[in-house]
Amino acid sequence: MRSAFIEELVALAAVHDNIALIVGDLGFGVIEPFADRFPDRFFNAGVAEQNMASMAAGMASEGYHVFTYSIANFPTFRCAEQIRNDIAYHGLPVTTVAVGAGLAYGSLGYSHHAVQDYALMRAMPGMMIAAPGDPLEVRACLRWLVANPGPSYLRLGKSGDPRFHDAVPDIEPGKWLTLRDGDRILLSTGAALGAALARAQSSHQGFGVCSLPLWGMATKASQLDQASTAQTVIAMEDHLADGGFGSWLWEAVSADPAIAARISSIALSDTVCGQVGSQAALNAIGGLTCTQ
């Protein structure tokens, strides 16, 4: 997802001269194509995420669409108040980009496990969460975010993530993308898409698979209609169950108890917190992926 991100960002920045990239001293081997091509619009804020986020807001208030880039929890939790007050409350076009979301940096330990970020970011009015499921959804999300500038959070996996679409899909906020049809649905967001497709071949045979790459507080209203067309919807996410995507979906449909009763969730259990290992191993320990 990282290379799709930087390729697409460079392509968009060639057309939109207000796109700027600020990194928090991370991105070696990733961000160079942007930095080399647009040196006037590239900044390294240093290891200083609070200043990076507020400064991005200040630039955005002067007409830039700023992308802040760091890994795991650094661009979100470390500067949560700056995102809340300076970016989201002011309604400014800053896209906070986190790479290595979920358990992609599994071996690096708890500091690098981004498994509570949805809970934080979805609590902010006006914040669009962009959680692509594969590199083609990354491109689709970026194109949408640039065409609709505002406070947003782009949650990326790592390098070498598999493709699940044939072409860049058409996406819109709140709208489920169907990858496999079915009356019962595994509805995935972010990098859990691979796990959803795998479950549809094993523990959940016969289930359809959908991906929801763009969501947030403002898109809750569109969920009830979509959920009502399925017999069962299982939300899937590489995030703790608490405060995550499944919680969001359930809240979104809870006005109709009959529909809400069809919603359940497969997310990470907190048993994974503090454990160390590969992403695959930790996703299995946390209960996201099937071990049988």
Binding site: S54, G58, M59, E81, N85
Partner: peptide, 14 residues
């Protein structure tokens, strides 16, 4: 602790 960073972003843009 927010104003100086926000202002730095504005000054950088200018």
């Amino acid at each position: 602790g927010h104003g100086l960073s926000f202002g730095t972003g504005k000054a950088l843009a200018a």
